[in-house]
Design a protein around this nucleic acid. Sequence first.
DNA 1: CCAAAAGTGTTGCCCGTACACCCATGA
DNA 2: TCATGGGTGTACGGGCAACACTTTTGG
Lengths: 216, 216
Amino acid sequence: MRARRLEVLVWQRALEPFAGRWSLPGGYLEPVETLEDSIRRQLASKVDVREVAHLEQLETLSDPDRVPNEWQLATAYLGLVPTDADPAIPVDTAWQRVDRLPPAAFDHAAIIRAGRDRLRAKLSYTNVAFALAPAEFTISELRDIYRAALGHDVSATNLQRVLVRRDVLEPTGGHRAPGPSGGRPGALFRFRARELEITDQFAVLRPPGPARAAAS
Amino acid sequence: MRARRLEVLVWQRALEPFAGRWSLPGGYLEPVETLEDSIRRQLASKVDVREVAHLEQLETLSDPDRVPNEWQLATAYLGLVPTDADPAIPVDTAWQRVDRLPPAAFDHAAIIRAGRDRLRAKLSYTNVAFALAPAEFTISELRDIYRAALGHDVSATNLQRVLVRRDVLEPTGGHRAPGPSGGRPGALFRFRARELEITDQFAVLRPPGPARAAAS
DNA sequence: CCAAAAGTGTTGCCCGTACACCCATGA
DNA sequence: TCATGGGTGTACGGGCAACACTTTTGG
């Protein structure tokens, strides 16, 4: 998936079943291969996507009817690509807006919804957005990413405050030149870490007092 | 898993590999069967556990080295059983304390840790505790369950307030007779719902204003 | 009357939202 | 000096933790 409008990379099936409908990239697991390795291999070879910034398992689907006339398990993953990445994708594949998804094959519509929901949840309590953002960005650019992913408006003011308080962002010192219509130049930021971190320990019922010893 | 001390149901392997070490119940998927059906079948037939109040998928493990000399995938599930359930388990199986787990087979120690962590997290923002609690209980009994699962002290006062404010608990009207040493009789409660519900929409960066229309 | 256990009232704090206001730039 | 967009200061409110205090029981 990528942002500006949140989009999924899907390809249009030529053959039955589900000819003409859109399908997530994927394929069969090769012998002695990790699921994650397999996904990366499929993405690199089939759709030439190599800059997956974050990859996480969603769920393994086992409904016997999910593939017609066949018994097939699938493990769904969520992969995120920065907005500025623009891989050369094959002709039968396209980025489709997640909120206006054309008819999908198999149970892929549900998988896409699950991925979107997981992303939305994690935007609230982790730094996942690092996987959607370019290396450097202004707060308003980041706000556009959050807007696209969350599907509702986001205030740049509060976005900045939350992410800086949580120590997720750091200023690079640079500034972005204003557009043709003027305006104050925006300060550039980067994500302090570029792997997934939980930044909001939202736990209610947390350990008492100052003695927050981690029990194992 | 079950509570009072958080415990896992495991069985001790007789044969290699990992003879003598403890292993989670499980088995092979039968043709044209759902993963969840399979788990319930295994639990019922192998360890005679039928009162699983909540079952949820954790992760599918695919490391080629997770089983020696063989390539085997496994999908791990978390299943919860009320504290008052006491299934008749076979001789080679036992409830083991999660915080003092004896040596486990395969990657099962990691799975158990993952299950424990998932449970701890969900106790904070869902009503999962319904799956650990008996039908009726006093606040202090419920507190003991939370204490066991979270691994730290929990205040009965605040536990009650949180769960009542969220409308997770409802009083049954009944009271539990005090113990031999006296004390005020405790009011009985039950969970309003007995399926998983998210009770704390912890989302930061939530939709603005009163117009919280759900975007789809 | 005392101890024990349950339950309520109150306060303080953290943190996210909202909104008013100030700053830097191009035309 | 005006329009445009970036950034800061501040007030309000929700929700949880902590703790003092009250209530109900058995000895």
